[in-house]
Structure formats: structure tokens, C-alpha cells
Design a protein around this nucleic acid. Structure first.
Length: 564
DNA sequence: AGAATATGATTCC
DNA sequence: TGGAATCCCTATTC
């Protein structure tokens, strides 16, 4: 697995190690970058070469040439190579809490070559990190009028958003694997459902933080999407990579399988079907799901029976990751997937190739959602680091009406990011999405959760907490209250606006709990977590030790290693 | 403190 | 077309 062959091909270049790392990194072109040119790298280089190389791409060797001359003391020399491109002359990686890009690679944010994220035009506003991309097409008359006449009036009104920006309660390590999806209960305001990579479903009353419930036997691997049954909000459906749709009674925990695409068990990876996108068409009483081979399935919720045959809605063999029914027009279905398309369908004429619209993207589309009230706009999240807004009224669907460059790269170890609408926003312009790229906030490397006004592309707010050093790819805004729920790694967080909740330090200590689980002897400590009382059964309240503080330069939690 | 590892889209041959 | 190599701003365990 290790790219050993590449490492062995390095030319041997020795550089005197400079005790002051900051100076050395900024003056690489001077004589310290002397090539000693000991000839080409030998192909038969022994494997132990790896042991002379530390984790930062530096090569440590004893300077033998000095030995030969006799008197000179043995000095340790380092060759500094970029750990990304393996070339000397520059270094990439963390310098403290700031990540330095490799200049040989395209910009990590906008993916364009020729610059790094430091100078990317899409993050010139340092305090925001994200600015709107220019409109792709402004030759539309309606848009022009909107720009001229409406925008000047709209802009001052926009900041009225209420942003949930302070953690009010949390369960650290709620799940035993990373969180993959979240869903608020449709009627009970304090109930949050969470699915994880292991197939477990959490039911959490975040007003009674300690009453943590995790159903372990609903699925056997990733829970990809959950939806409440519209006619009975005590029942929830979930689609999983185990190939089943589950139907679970939240009171009893009783779960049954609505559909199973792998009735004969494991028949090899090319036969194992996984369910990703799911939604409910309450009008028709149908659960819609889609698999990793491009097919859509429908199940009648009254008879629990499959309707018709599977329909190919995306490129054959490609994953369909998202399905969404239009909130206003029940005939309209939206799908998105790994074939780089989001597609709009008419439920009355569902067959392969009969989509009403194909929304083209440059990369995989992680999510596509109709706007929650009018259903006239579509918000997509694509792995090309762009959010796109497609407007069926003020624009055509041939091209997005706006593209917003935003850092939400794909990483196989992270749940894919999905931008979500604020269901409460009457103007249908507020979206929330976690950010991949780290920002250095007074010495702490943090990944904020961004609130973006999709009508202007502006970053309305970036929400973070110095205690949360992990990326938060899963976010959901409450359907009625000013609450944000976040899934970050295995933890769940509930955010509320500052003015509505007292600072957590003064609040009920039990609002933050840390679950033991497998983390008994964990060394990297969460702030305030003490090692002494690590009872690993159930939840352990660590509230009194756990303090939320403003990011301060001295008290950054688990800071990134600072080069010395 | 550093190594190992889990594991998916994409590219290349 | 299919399998191997590659990748990289992760999180966690050992």
C-alpha cells in the first residue's frame, strides 16, 4: 500500500538543518539548498531507507563527506522535500495551525492551477474564507432586472438571519463510528435521529442529554438516509448500504425490513447492492430508494410491496446518492449521483432516459435538494468544491444560476458534505454546509460550519467552537426552531443562537457528556477530559470539567504540531 | 510520538 | 472494460 517505489527514487540531496525553521523555510533558495550530487539514486536502494525519513518528508542522514575529511564533527543534515509532490525547494503541510499548500498542485479550494489557497481569489476575504463566484450567466433579462432593482433592496434585509452559533449540548462520541446522516423529528422538537457508518441509529432527546438511545440492530452497515413516515411520525425509514430499507418504530425499537436487495447474502462486490438516496412521496404513499448501480426502486408504504421494476435513472453501474421529492409538486422527483448529474423526473413517466432535465456537474454530486417552500430552486453540492443553485423560474436549467466556490472536498474517510436549506427561511436563500479546509483561528486549526446566502453567494456566518477540532460534514437545521445539529466524526452537537442560551460554562454541567466506549485509554484528550474516571460502560458525564471557551492563542485544544 | 489503518473517486494502462 | 495505483488540509488506535 505504501508508495515505497516513489520514495526510493528520490535524488539524494543534503541540506544543512537550520535550527530556526521559519527562516529556513523562507530562504530555501540560498546555499543551504546545496545539491551534493552523489549520483543517481540506485535502484537497489535498501528498504531501510524509509527509516531515515521522518513523517514530514525530511530525509535525515549522516553527512559522510564531512567524516572523510577527518576533523569536522559529524553533523546531521536534512533534506526537506514537499510531502505532497516530493520535490525539494518548498514544503507543504501544517505550520502550526495553518496549512501551507504545495505550489505544484492546483488550488485546494477552487481547483484551478497557478495559485494556492493562500492567494485564491475565492478566499481573498480572509475573515470569511469564502466569497461568491461570479455569476456564470448574466445575459438573462430577468436576472439583469433583478440585479438592478431588487438586489440593492434585498441586501440590507438579509442579515436578519438567526444563526445558531453556540454549542448548547453535545454527546462526544455518541456513535461508535462516524455519523452519516441526521434527521429531526417532524413533531417532537427535541428529538434528533442520527445514523452512523456501522448501521446504528441514535435517537437523542437533546433536552435530556443523558437519555441516549442507540439502536444497534437496524442495519449492518452505513445508514445513508432516514425519513419519517408522513402518516405516522413514530415510524422512520432508513436506507442502508446493507441493501435494505428498514422501518423502525421509535418507541419500541422494533424494526422490519421493507426491501432487501441482497436476499442471498454476499455474492461478491459486483453483486452486492447498496441503497443510498431515499425519500418519501407522501402523496402517493411511496418510498423511493436508489442503489449503487444506478437504479430506482419504489415501495408502497401501505402494502409494503415493491412497485414495478427497478428503473435506471443514472449511468449504469454508478451510485445514486440522493433522491428528493418536490415539496409542492408531488410529480417531481430529483436525483443525483456519481455520474456527475442531478436529474429531474416526472413521476408519471419514469423510465430510463425520460428525465425532464439533466443538471451537469464537473464531479460527483453529493446532494441535490429542492428549495423547501416553493420547490422552485435546486441546491446541489458537488465534489468539484462548488455549490450550485439552479432556478426553474428566474433561469433555465441548462446552467446553474449561481456557482459558489466552497471547500467541501471528497475524502474517503469523511461522510460526504451536503449543503442543506434552512427550512424556516421564507426567502429560501440560507444554506448550511460544513467546511473542509482548516482555518487558523488564533492558533487553533478549526473547520467551521458555514451559513451561506445562496442568493448572493456571501458567507453569512461561520460557526465553530475551539473544542471541535474535527470536520463536521453532516449538518441539519431544525424545521421550526433556531437550532443546528451537527455530526462531526462520532459526536453530535446541538447549536443555538448565543442570545437564547447562556454560556455553557454557567449552565447545567450535564449538557456535555462524553461517552466512554472504546475510548478508555485514549491519550489525545478532549479539553477537560480527565483520564482517571474512564468507566467505559455507557455515558459518563464530564460536564464539570468540560469548558467551552473562546478560541485563544494559548488555549488551543490539541493544536497542530508546530515545526521546530 | 509516530505508524498503521479504514477505504472511495479517479486516472491510467 | 477492469484492475491497480494514487491521493490529499482525516480520525483514531496502537
Amino acid at each position: 500500500m505504501a508508495p515505497r517505489t516513489r520514495r526510493m527514487a528520490f535524488p539524494k540531496v543534503l541540506i544543512e538543518r537550520d535550527t530556526d525553521s521559519e527562516q529556513s523555510s523562507s530562504s530555501d533558495d540560498e546555499d543551504e539548498l546545496e545539491e551534493e550530487d552523489e549520483g543517481p539514486p540506485s535502484e537497489s536502494e535498501p528498504e531501510e531507507e524509509d527509516s531515515t525519513k521522518n513523517g514530514y518528508g525530511e530525509r535525515i542522514e549522516e553527512d559522510l563527506s564531512l567524516k572523510k575529511k577527518g576533523k569536522a564533527p559529524i553533523t546531521i543534515s536534512l533534506k526537506k522535500v514537499c510531502k505532497v509532490c516530493k520535490k525539494p525547494g518548498h514544503e507543504a503541510g501544517f505550520k502550526g495551525a495553518t496549512y501551507i499548500d504545495c505550489p505544484m498542485k492546483p488550488c485546494f479550494l477552487c481547483k484551478m492551477p497557478g495559485h494556492t489557497t493562500m492567494t485564491c481569489p475565492h478566499r481573498v476575504a480572509i475573515e470569511h474564507g469564502v466569497i461568491p463566484a461570479p455569476r456564470t450567466s448574466t445575459h438573462n433579462t430577468v436576472e439583469y432586472v433583478l440585479q438592478r432593482q431588487l438586489r440593492p433592496r434585498i441586501l440590507p434585509i438579509k442579515p436578519a438571519y438567526v444563526i445558531p452559533d453556540q454549542v448548547c449540548c453535545a454527546v462526544i462520541r455518541y456513535h461508535s463510528r462516524r455519523v452519516t446522516c441526521l434527521e429531526f423529528h417532524p413533531t417532537k422538537n427535541n428529538i434528533l435521529l442520527s445514523g452512523d457508518k456501522k448501521g446504528q441509529v441514535g435517537v437523542w432527546d437533546f433536552d435530556k442529554v443523558h437519555e441516549r438511545m442507540v439502536y444497534q440492530n437496524i442495519h449492518t452497515c452505513i445508514v445513508n438516509n432516514m425519513r419519517f413516515k408522513s402518516t405516522n411520525d413514530g415510524m422512520v425509514y432508513a436506507a442502508s448500504s446493507d441493501g435494505t430499507i428498514s422501518s423502525t418504530d421509535l418507541e419500541t425499537g422494533m424494526s422490519s425490513s421493507l426491501m432487501n436487495l441482497n436476499p442471498n447474502g454476499w455474492q461478491g462486490p459486483s453483486n452486492w447492492r447498496m441503497l443510498y438516496g431515499m425519500d418519501i412521496n407522501s402523496e402517493k404513499g411511496v418510498v423511493l430508494v436508489a442503489d449503487n448501480f444506478g437504479f430506482l426502486y419504489m415501495v408502497d408504504t401501505r402494502s409494503n410491496s415493491k412497485i414495478g421494476e427497478a428503473i435506471l435513472i443514472h449511468k449504469k453501474g454508478s451510485k445514486v446518492v440522493g433522491l428528493h421529492c418536490n415539496p409542492v409538486q408531488p410529480e417531481l422527483l430529483l436525483s443525483c449521483g456519481n455520474d456527475h448529474f442531478a436529474r429531474i423526473w416526472d413521476m408519471r413517466q419514469l423510465k430510463a432516459g425520460s428525465s425532464l432535465s439533466d443538471l451537469a456537474h464537473k464531479r460527483v454530486v453529493n446532494s441535490a435538494y429542492f428549495s423547501p417552500l416553493s420547490g422552485s430552486k435546486i441546491l446541489t453540492t458537488s465534489q468539484d468544491n462548488r455549490l450550485r443553485i439552479w432556478d426553474s423560474i428566474f433561469g433555465n436549467l441548462d446552467s446553474p444560476s449561481r456557482e459558489i466556490v466552497h471547500s467541501h472536498d471528497f475524502n474517503r474517510h469523511l461522510t460526504p458534505f451536503r449543503a442543506e436549506w434552512d427550512p424556516k427561511d421564507p426567502t429560501e436563500s440560507l444554506a448550511v454546509i460544513g467546511r473542509y479546509m482548516v482555518e487558523n483561528y488564533n492558533g487553533a486549526a478549526l473547520h467551521p460550519i458555514d451559513f451561506i446566502d445562496i442568493s448572493t453567494g456571501q458567507l453569512v456566518a461561520e460557526v465553530m467552537d475551539p473544542n471541535i477540532t474535527t470536520i463536521s460534514p453532516v449538518n441539519k437545521l431544525h424545521p421550526r426552531d433556531d437550532i443546528l445539529a451537527s455530526g462531526s466524526s462520532r459526536s453530535l452537537f446541538i447549536w443555538r443562537p448565543k442570545e437564547k442560551s447562556e454560556p455553557v460554562e454557567k449552565k447545567d454541567e450535564s449538557k456535555i457528556i462524553i461517552c466512554g466506549g472504546a475510548m478508555k485509554k485514549r491519550k489525545g484528550k478532549f479539553r477537560g477530559e480527565s483520564d482517571d474516571d474512564s468507566e467505559d460502560d455507557g455515558c459518563v458525564s464530564k460536564g464539570k470539567n468540560f469548558q467551552f471557551k473562546k478560541a485563544e492563542s494559548k488555549s488551543a485544544p490539541r493544536p497542530r504540531k508546530v515545526n521546530k
